[in-house]
């Protein structure tokens, strides 16, 4: 006798641990951008080239964790939260899924590789995306130890020791206290 086919409906769950890990990383990165814009000249120059009140977000699709940063003043930035729907965003850079975010935030795929592998979607004016990517690169170089940062960026820069050590400490502090 023929077996009846069994239909089931599944609402696959969420990976709470991974979401939490990415949320913390993104939160810290958002705050680090705010801090770097106060500390590093190059980051300030990049912000200066962006339009007033320019808002950008980096995060995970669909409705995953994000950070949103807005240009404030002439060349500084403000971390303004994690909720992507709360305000209009000029430039959105999103990983297509949680696992893609995990690959990048566990340093197994850097941003160029994630882009090459079609894991990242950029939505908005691409000219500004270039500035944002440079900002993210600099922030990563500050936040990560050299061994890891070398994997994260295409070319590890030769900065004077002072810039690296002093600014790194300042950025870490400011990110933590949110100033």
């Amino acid at each position: 006798m023929r077996m009846e086919l069994v239909y089931r409906e599944i609402s696959p769950g969420r990976s709470y641990l991974k979401r939490a890990y990415l949320s913390i990383n993104l939160w810290f990165m958002g705050r680090a951008i705010q801090a770097a814009a106060r500390v590093d000249d190059q980051v300030r120059r990049e912000f200066r080239s962006l339009p007033d009140k320019f808002t950008f977000a980096l995060g995970i699709m669909p409705e995953g964790p994000h950070f949103i940063v807005q240009k404030s003043g002439v060349d500084s930035a403000r971390y303004i939260g994690r909720c992507i729907d709360a305000q209009p965003v000029d430039l959105k850079m999103e990983f297509k899924h949680l696992e893609a975010g995990m690959l990048t935030f566990t340093f197994r795929e850097n941003t160029p590789v994630a882009t090459a592998r079609d894991r990242l979607v950029v939505d908005g004016e691409v000219a500004y995306a270039c500035s944002v990517v440079r900002i993210l690169d600099i922030v990563q170089i500050y936040l990560l130890p050299k061994l890891v940062a070398r994997l994260a960026v295409k070319r590890y820069p030769r900065w004077p020791l002072g810039r690296k050590l002093i600014n790194r400490t300042r950025i870490y502090w400011r990110s933590l206290i949110g100033y």
Binding site: R2, E4, E9, I10, P12, G13, R19, P62, E63
Partner: peptide, 30 residues
């Protein structure tokens, strides 16, 4: 394959272990 839909906020229907002996009837059921 099922796990790939985690965090996707999609609901999926699944039918597994489908035999292939009587395609016409199975296609009709599916």
């Amino acid at each position: 394959v099922v796990n790939a839909f985690r965090d996707s906020q999609m609901t999926i229907g699944v039918v597994e272990e489908i035999p292939t002996d009587d395609p016409q009837a199975i296609v009709r059921q599916l």
